[in-house]
Design a protein around this nucleic acid. Structure first.
Lengths: 244, 244
DNA sequence: CGCCCACTTGAAGCAGCTCAATTGAAGTGG
DNA sequence: CCACTTCAATTGAGCTGCTTCAAGTGGGCG
């Protein structure tokens, strides 16, 4: 757990609280709770009441939605500093679940508490709005993608997006996804099946664009992935130079 | 155009401004502008700078997104009272376009003006957040639908959604969509082609579930449409009684 | 009245899904 | 350290829902 001092220092980095002075931050911190969970456990589950707002401090969280018939959709990953999930301000049930992909720590405010804070410090509300607007915009783009693009391009986009959301580790000079990521996960991100993802990745591996193993994925030629995502020349041929 | 008095009376109905007193409303109204446009004209277009926030007063607006290759996606319709579109608070370009489907009137605030209003009247920001959260939630649901459901069910869902967003007119006892709605529009809403939509509607028409013509659509058996959307029994057989 | 444009319908092709069998890498326990 | 288990990943074969292309049809508006 965290001491107050430590918490305030943390919160200073959080985009949601930008523009607040030290005193304000201290007040906001006083209203917060802290929650830590293990890998594969949930901050909240689809169907339970949405009574809190989270800001991820350490770890990595994935947001998923599932249907009655056990079809799952992977909406996005949350990186440290990001807010999740302002689904409802009125005590409606969550329509998604938040699962830690490894040990994670989040700062939590009850919804009524957060609303009170926003009334008192309006810039929090404006920051939240900014974050929500960005989310909405990204999701709209993905929606368009899903409606108009072929699978291969969607998978390429998913990899590029993972670079931003999930982060990468440098390993022997290449980008390695910093998340345990199965074919199933990628399929659920792009609206396809794990078989199709496997075939696509196999093709890219043959072309030297990526390296991959069990829950592991490394991009050898970022520019080639970009080319596939954007319909540039040189998409399938492996004649691109690896960047880095 | 509108007088101040009239404008204030209007703004009292707007969810975005709920919780404000008469004086506050008057101040908010003073900072607003008013814009009226004809059918088929745009409040804003994809690519231009997002420097304003709109609240629709009268008419009907559709939000669309298009790709470089002229593929279009119809994101949603805006009904009077709704806010559109808080895409960006920072002067980024719009990633969508807002087109009037008939003569429309909207109240407009410049983005910096609206941010200042939110700082002054935090409940506006909270209301905006509420609206954004609802949008995000709905879009996530549609994203999941697009990723996991067949076309026929997506079209059924689109009709149900239109009932809420676009409104219906009662005509000889049946629900008629209150928007000029082509097969192409429905295709762009559901991520398919106008041909497939045409075939699906033809089937429903044979089963007596709908009536349809040129840019016209009437639902004869709402419960049958619901059944198709939700995978209930009695989906394709026309043995349901019309509600109403 | 005649043209335009939304809509319909058929036929062919294919991208991606489904099912099934196999491989192989990472634990696990003796 | 090796046998065993487990589970992600691969790959083939067949199928199908949907797209694509092309040719009509008919309602509505100028």
């Amino acid at each position: 757990m965290l001491e107050r001092q430590q918490l305030v220092r943390l919160l200073r980095q959080v985009p949601l609280l930008h523009g607040l002075g030290p005193n304000d931050l201290s007040g906001v911190a006083a209203a917060a709770q802290c929650r830590e969970i293990e890998r594969r456990r949930f901050f909240f589950r689809q169907g339970t009441i949405a009574d809190a707002v989270y800001v991820l401090n350490r770890g990595r969280v994935k947001l998923t939605q599932s249907t009655p018939k056990q079809a799952h959709v992977l909406l996005r990953f949350i990186a440290p500093g990001e807010m999740f999930d302002l689904t409802s301000l009125d005590g409606q049930p969550y329509t998604l679940s938040a699962e830690a992909t490894r040990w994670s720590q989040a700062v939590v405010w009850k919804v009524p508490t957060m609303i009170a804070l926003m009334e008192r410090y309006p810039s929090i509300a404006v920051n939240a709005l900014r974050e929500m607007a960005a989310r909405l915009q990204e999701l709209r783009e993905r929606y368009r993608e899903l409606a108009t693009e072929r699978v291969e391009r969607r998978v390429a986009h998913a990899l590029i997006r993972l670079a931003r959301e999930a982060g990468w580790r440098r390993e022997s000079g290449f980008s390695l996804v910093d998340i345990p990521l199965s074919r199933q996960d990628l399929a659920e991100m792009t609206g396809t099946t794990l078989y199709t993802v496997s075939r696509i990745l196999a093709g890219w591996r043959r072309d030297g664009i990526i390296e991959s193993g069990r829950q592991r994925l490394a991009i050898l030629q970022p520019s080639a992935v970009q080319a596939i995502a954007e319909d540039l020349p040189g998409a399938t041929s492996g004649d691109e130079k690896p960047k880095t």
